[in-house]
Each structure stands twice: as structure tokens, then as C-alpha cells.
Amino acid sequence: MNTRIIENTKLDLVTEEMNLEASSILYSYNELRSKFPDNIDYLKLHEIQIQIGKLGEAFAYEYELTKLYVTEYQALVDNSKAADPTNGYDILSFDTDGTKLYIEVKTSINDESDFYITQNEIDTARDCLSRGEKYLIYRITNIMDERSRVKVNVISDIINSNIYVVEPYHYKVRIKEDSW
């Protein structure tokens, strides 16, 4: 009988601790929420993100042209691929020996290392790898800084990387066909 009293007391203490933790989280959330404006313009935010991406693609294109300067491959660099997201890459370029490079550009305004990649881009990387072709990700950071501070990190194999982990992020929810 004494054991039950002790167990109930422990349970009450744990419940109180959980309530304190929950209330501090809610307080933090409410405090944080109060700092955001009521009317965030998500369309404008998305527009800005698109412009940052285009700026990174332009930087990568110039980077490739500079790399291939005075080679026959410089004129073949194609950045029109970025206009069609179904390609799974942004720029078609070449090594100095003529090897094709399929380049996906991921850009940020700071040194943030995480980035998002679509399933189509992963599929394109796998397809290139299976054909023995090169799929590169140009991770461009600090794009809004002076040109000398912009960094380009080339990821040569995102599929088999020992440095990066690719995690599923989005899930599609749909109604089952037989439930109609």
C-alpha cells in the first residue's frame, strides 16, 4: 500500500514537470509569435527566394564560363536549362576535357549549410550516375555579399556522399482511389 502512494506521488511529480515544460514551450511560442507581423506577404517572400536562386544560377554560369575560358567548351555552356524545372538541373557545362557536367545550383544569402533538393533532382542525379555522367551541386553561399566573399562548394556525388545526408522532407497526402 505504501508503494502505491509513492508511485502516485512520482506520477504527480512527473505530470507537474510535464505541465511546466509544456507551459514554458507555449509561452515561448506565444512570445515568438508576437514578434511576427500579422500579415506576412508569402508571395513576396517566395519572389525574393526565386530572385536569390536566379542570382546564384547567374553566378554559377559566370563561374563555368571563367573556368572554361579559352577552351572550345566555353561556348557550349547552357544555362537555359534553369528555365525548366523538369530538367532536374540548372546548367549544362563541361570539364576542360569535354566531359558533360549537369549542374544543380543551390543558393543562400548566408553560410547556412542545409538546403532543399527535390525528388526530381535526386532522380536526375541517380540517372546521371547510372549512365556514368557527372551530376554536380554548386552550393553557393553569401550570394548578397561582395563577390570575393561568395563561396562555391561543389558537391560531386550527393547520392553516395559521406558528408551529406539526404532526408525526405515533404509527403503528399491523397485520397485512396477506392474510397471514392
Rank of each mutant, 00 (worst) to 15 (best):
I117W: 07
K100E: 13
D84C: 07
D97H: 05
Y73H: 05
I122T: 06
V70A: 15
D90R: 14
I52N: 07
I140T: 07
S80H: 14
G132D: 12
T86L: 07
A60W: 04
Q119Y: 05
K67R: 15
T96R: 12
E112N: 12
Y73D: 01
I143D: 01
E72A: 10
I109H: 05
R149H: 13
S130D: 01
Y116G: 02
T141M: 09
R126W: 10
E121C: 10
V77F: 04
A58N: 13
E72P: 07
E64Y: 02
A125F: 02
Y138F: 15
T71E: 05
D114Q: 06
L129W: 07
E62Q: 10
S113T: 14
Y69T: 04
G132M: 14
K134L: 07
T71L: 04
P85R: 05
I122V: 14
I109A: 10
D78K: 08
T71V: 03
E72I: 11
V70D: 15
T99V: 08
S130M: 00
I117A: 10
D84W: 07
Y73G: 01
E133A: 09
I117T: 04
R147P: 02
E121M: 08
D123A: 13
E104T: 03
E112S: 14
K81W: 01
D111S: 09
A60H: 04
N87R: 12
Y69M: 02
S113H: 14
K134C: 05
L65N: 06
D111H: 06
M144V: 15
A83L: 03
L136Q: 12
E62S: 13
E112P: 00
D78L: 10
Y102Q: 13
L92W: 02
A82C: 14
D78E: 10
T66Q: 14
N142R: 15
G53S: 09
L76F: 11
N110P: 06
E146W: 10
D145F: 06
